[in-house]
Nucleic acid binder design. Sequence first.
DNA 1: CGCATTTTATTCATAGGTGTATCATTCAAT
DNA 2: ATTGAATGATACACCTATGAATAAAATGCG
Lengths: 148, 148
Amino acid sequence: MNDMGTSYQPGLVQLLISAGRTMTTLLDERLQPLELSAAKFFTLYILAEAQQEMAFSVLAQALGTGKSNVTPLIDRLEKDGMVRRIRSEDDRRVIYIRITAQGTERLQQAQAAFTDITDSLKGEFTLDEMNVLSGLLARFVTRYCYPD
Amino acid sequence: MNDMGTSYQPGLVQLLISAGRTMTTLLDERLQPLELSAAKFFTLYILAEAQQEMAFSVLAQALGTGKSNVTPLIDRLEKDGMVRRIRSEDDRRVIYIRITAQGTERLQQAQAAFTDITDSLKGEFTLDEMNVLSGLLARFVTRYCYPD
DNA sequence: CGCATTTTATTCATAGGTGTATCATTCAAT
DNA sequence: ATTGAATGATACACCTATGAATAAAATGCG
């Protein structure tokens, strides 16, 4: 579904979907040498930003994805030693996720790949265009991802 | 990964991914009553546009996705009676996919859901903004989805 | 207190996406 | 003609996502 622009007039619907997939692919490609996926990267990113361990459900919320999806994601990250599960003492249902030193290190390497992409974009689009695009996309996401 | 804009400054990378997911979700929601997914919808759409049966690999190309992904997709559509596989007489390796009458009918119902979304967008964005957004997204996709 | 409800994470079924390998068929080259 | 390369669809392993069901723990209320 990445090239829906070849044989017909792609509307905004197709373009938004294609662009999202293109960017995910781009990110995956650059992260592959580090054995990270886009999903793993964003998870580490959020955990590092938080500066502290994060409740499982809060993390799922921040990732904007269901908990049932996050469980195996954390499984893989934990298996790789990027992250640790910590059972809460107060409420034994809740599990905190903490990024490990190794995870922090890996994230820092990955940030380079991330800024690579941004730099590449700067070569293709003017700063003004990027601001316009960001603004419009942000409006779309906030409007349609959190409907009234 | 849909709301990466709440707690930190989302860059274009996150915004593009989030926007793509938001739109896919939007489309899936509207198509759900018709028991269609976005992927199924686009498949039927392409087949109907083609006005004739389409070689399996051409369809995969048009969908911009790998063949290994299209096989089970066609399986599901065929099970639903939306589509039929037809083995080529000339070259018995190739399989043609043909949309059925039932598939055409379902697609027509789905088009309404599709234009619903476009109409909704027209309420949130000016025509000018939508053109700008389309233009920038198209440039991004063509530039990064078919790298030199 | 006891019991129903809610909350938290997990599991399962289903869907969609990737890359790699496989298998039959066709085409090309000797 | 028979071998060998290329091609078309599928199989398989993996990752990401969703919704529904489940188990365990906490909460609340009569």
